[in-house]
Every structure is written in structure tokens, then in C-alpha cells.
Simulated scan of single mutants.
Amino acid sequence: MTMFFAILFYLAFAIFIAGVAYKIYDYARTPAPLSIPTTPAPITKGGVAFRMFREVLFFESLFKGNLWIWLFGWLFHMALFLVLIRHLRYFTEPVWGWVAFLQPFGMYAGFAMAAGLAGLWGRRFLVERIRYISTPSDHLMLALLLLIALSGLGIKFLMHTDIIAVKVFFLGLMMFDIQPLPSHIGLYVHLLLVALLMIIFPFSKLLHAPGVFFSPTRNQTDNPREVRHLAPWAAQIEKN
């Protein structure tokens, strides 16, 4: 199974990087023909930067729109952030000091991550208007993320594996020096789910992660009286 997972993660990583890079390029070149910031909006670029900071870190607009969705969504994303930080120990040697410091927080953040996902998935069954607009892909994405969280918690607290060997395996992948992966069914399931997520991430709704930075309702200044908004393609037409 070592060679299978080595090839799988090389493939998943390549698809993930290429797919996300292309999507970001596509977002960046998509014109914004109108000035449409959601008001009240900042009138300076500094204000826009601060607004984006609040949006990315605190989910400000979601907080104003629906407290329950904000609670589960923010809980999931912040817990996921800590979990990802915790997993950096498998890719660094020696482990960075701040990563080592956050290890206990990342360990229990897995429970918060699962709870947040359960809440987000539950609303797609319990809230009628959300249930009506939910698609199979919405359920599959949440199921995949929840299975990743639960399988990771299972490895940590129920089905222990040789994490030193796991780290050696991933450090070896980074150096193109493939090392044996521990034989552990729980680990296989967890890694398979993670690789699947990496492969489908660039083509799914989960890509809102980088997409939020290209949202014209968030990244534009509210200065239509002072500055004329002119899309590049419109400027080209005027020149002709």
C-alpha cells in the first residue's frame, strides 16, 4: 500500500495545486463591470482591507445574517485551521516551536470540527428552505469532511498507529524518497479520504476559500461619486 498512497498523494497534490492556481487565475481575470460593494461599505482601500480581514477571520456578514449558521460555520473553520496547523508536524523536522505549542489545541479542535460539520449538515435536513435548495453534492461534501474528522479522531483516540512512521513517510514524499507507510486500516481510510478531498477541492463549492477575496461585493470601495468604475474591457472599447 505504500506505493499506492505515494502515487495517490503525488497525483492529489498536483491536481490540488494546479486546480486551485487555475481557479485563482480565472477569478482574477473575470471582469467586474459594475461597482457593487455591499453597503455600508468602506470608502478607502485600507477600509476594504480591514473589511476583508473581518470577513475572513470572523465571518462578519454571516454573523449579521444568521447566528446559528455563523456559529457552526465559524466553529468548523477555526477548528479546521487548528487541525491543519497541528498536522504541520508531519511535514517539518524539527517541528517549529509555534506548531509544537498549538498541538494540544489542534488535538481537541478535531471534536469542534466534527461538531461544526454536524451542525452544518443537520440544518440541511432540519431547515425546510435549506433542505429544498440542498443538492447531493452539498451532502457529499459535508459527509466527506465529517468522515475525515471522525477517522482522524479515531486514529488519535481509538485505533493508534505509528505516527513516527507516518511522518517519515510524508517527509520522504517531500524528498522523493518513499518510505514505508504503517499497515493500519484506519490510517488507510483517513489518508484515502484526505486525498479524495484534495482532488475534488478545486472543482467543488469548497473553493470559496480563495474566492472570497475576489468577490466584488466585498473587495470594492464605495466611491462611485469620486472615482468612475471602468472595467478593463470597457476601457478598451472607449479607446476604440
Rank of each mutant, 00 (worst) to 15 (best):
138 D>A: 04
59 F>R: 10
119 G>E: 07
118 A>L: 15
144 L>S: 07
167 K>W: 00
104 P>D: 11
85 I>W: 08
142 L>V: 02
128 E>S: 11
158 L>D: 01
60 E>R: 15
130 I>L: 15
180 P>R: 05
102 L>W: 10
122 G>A: 10
169 F>L: 02
105 F>T: 10
143 A>M: 08
143 A>H: 03
88 L>K: 05
112 A>W: 06
71 L>Y: 11
108 Y>V: 14
180 P>F: 09
61 S>F: 01
102 L>V: 09
80 L>C: 05
154 G>Q: 04
68 W>M: 13
68 W>A: 10
137 S>W: 15
78 M>G: 00
147 L>D: 04
191 L>R: 04
144 L>I: 07
72 F>L: 01
166 V>H: 00
156 K>S: 06
143 A>C: 04
75 L>W: 02
124 R>N: 06
164 I>V: 10
90 Y>A: 13
119 G>K: 09
112 A>F: 15
175 M>Q: 15
106 G>T: 11
97 G>W: 07
93 E>V: 06
184 H>K: 06
178 I>P: 00
93 E>T: 12
183 S>N: 11
180 P>T: 02
115 A>E: 03
126 L>K: 10
170 F>T: 09
131 R>H: 14
141 M>C: 02
140 L>I: 13
99 V>W: 05
88 L>M: 15
128 E>R: 13
130 I>F: 15
171 L>A: 00
184 H>V: 02
165 A>Y: 02
57 L>C: 12
129 R>T: 14
147 L>E: 03
81 F>Y: 07
113 M>P: 02
70 W>V: 05
66 N>M: 02
184 H>A: 14
98 W>Q: 01
149 A>W: 04
176 F>M: 08
79 A>I: 01
63 F>E: 03
182 P>T: 09
163 I>A: 01
147 L>P: 03
174 M>R: 10
134 S>T: 15
77 H>K: 09
130 I>H: 08
67 L>M: 10
90 Y>Q: 06
151 S>E: 05
158 L>K: 07
55 E>M: 09
190 H>P: 08
131 R>F: 12
95 V>R: 12
122 G>E: 06
98 W>F: 15
124 R>D: 01
192 L>I: 03
189 V>G: 02
115 A>C: 03
172 G>W: 08
138 D>I: 06
191 L>Q: 11
148 I>E: 07
180 P>G: 03
177 D>C: 01
109 A>K: 10
74 W>T: 05
106 G>N: 07
130 I>K: 10
191 L>I: 06
79 A>T: 04
110 G>F: 03
163 I>E: 10
78 M>A: 07
124 R>T: 09
96 W>C: 00
80 L>S: 05
74 W>R: 11
121 W>M: 15
95 V>E: 13
126 L>P: 06
127 V>R: 11
170 F>W: 14
75 L>K: 02
94 P>M: 12
147 L>N: 12
124 R>Q: 12
137 S>R: 12
180 P>M: 07
189 V>T: 10
124 R>I: 08
72 F>W: 13
114 A>V: 10
126 L>M: 14
101 F>L: 15
179 Q>V: 01
103 Q>K: 14
193 L>A: 12
182 P>W: 08
118 A>Y: 08
98 W>V: 13
176 F>D: 00
70 W>F: 13
